[in-house]
């Protein structure tokens, strides 16, 4: 893991296209992103970056736009009649916005969808095979080895229908299926949602392991404690905008985040508290130490 050593690519770079300079473009770069579903604006002025090899977390209440953000990266907005109306998404220096979902996979960016969405009528083995459909066949064998090594239970259940697995096993399958494409960036949408604490911890460990093997991770979570423990950088989305961002450790220590996302007065080793309370009306108290604790307001 690159820890905090990674270059600060997420800063509000003075404008101008940043397509050149390959040194600093290995990773995901989202700039000034606005997404609409018809008349509904779900995201605006979102800046976010995931340096190569890093784990970044996106926190936020229900409806904040976390899933929309991942859809914008994976090219699946069109399945929901949504579209990027402004801003850019780039990975490894080349643009992803406007690229169809299947081509995004071939660029090495793979999303594990919210709610797992395993192919319930297919077997576990067939689900894994489906995960490798977008990449050359010769890569599948090594990818399968890696996946079964991470999740031995998938080997035991290889010939069971995926619909019959438990929630935790389905999540493992969903992650394993995504890894079959050998992604360099994995997008995870609430992987611990609805799982028992022990299983959630198990998934968290796996995410750490996957990252240690060299895959960058963009992790969307409502389980803020877990996400902040895993990530180097974190972003807090509120009603479609980045309300807070900074090193995960700093966010975990901030009063703002502790009160609203980790539970009042809680330390981050405590059990997380749900974020369903939604945005509170009071002003944000901005923790002084954070560089980019700001309400992003970018319009194209």
């Amino acid at each position: 893991m690159s820890g905090e050593a990674g270059p600060e690519t997420g800063g509000p770079r003075s404008e101008g296209p940043r397509i050149t300079d390959p040194e600093k473009t290995v990773g995901l770069e989202i700039r000034g992103l606005e997404v609409r579903y018809g008349p509904v604006r779900a995201l605006r002025g979102v800046h976010l970056s995931v340096p190569g090899g890093a784990v970044a977390a996106v926190l936020g209440a229900n409806g904040a736009g976390k899933t929309t953000l991942l859809r914008a990266v994976s090219g699946t907005l069109r399945f929901h009649r949504g579209a990027i109306t402004s801003g850019t998404v780039a990975f490894g220096g080349s643009r992803l916005d406007g690229v169809p979902a299947a081509a995004v996979v071939r660029r090495g960016v793979v999303q594990v969808p919210e709610g797992r969405r395993v192919f319930a009528r297919m077997t576990v083995a067939e689900n894994l095979r489906a995960g490798a459909l977008g990449v050359p066949g010769r890569l599948a064998a090594t990818a399968r080895e890696r996946v079964l090594d991470l999740f031995p239970v998938l080997a035991e259940r290889a010939h069971q229908r995926a619909g019959l697995l438990s929630g935790g096993e389905q999540q493992m399958l969903a992650i394993g299926r995504a890894l079959m494409a050998g992604p360099s960036l994995l997008l995870l949408d609430e992987p611990t949602l609805g799982l028992a604490p022990l299983m959630a911890a198990r998934i968290a460990d796996t995410v750490r392991q996957i990252n240690a093997q060299g895959t960058s991770v963009l992790l969307v979570e409502q389980n803020a404690a877990m996400a902040l423990a895993l990530a180097e950088r974190a972003y807090v989305l509120e009603v479609g905008e980045v309300a807070l961002s900074g090193p995960a450790a700093d966010l975990a220590a901030s009063d703002e985040v502790r009160r609203r996302y980790l539970g009042v007065g809680a330390t981050h080793s405590d059990r997380p508290v749900g974020t369903d309370s939604g945005p509170t009306p009071e002003e944000h108290e901005r923790p002084a130490r954070h560089e980019r604790t700001r309400l992003a307001r970018w319009t194209a």
């Binding site: 399945f79 969405r117 066949g137």
Partner: peptide, 24 residues
């Protein structure tokens, strides 16, 4: 075959199939 797996995956959930790199 891979073709068959792609067909069945698409039939079950087209969006997720696209997320697997299947060209719909």
């Amino acid at each position: 075959t891979g073709w068959g797996v792609a067909m069945r995956a698409t039939a079950e959930d087209a969006e997720t199939a696209a997320l697997m790199g299947v060209r719909l």
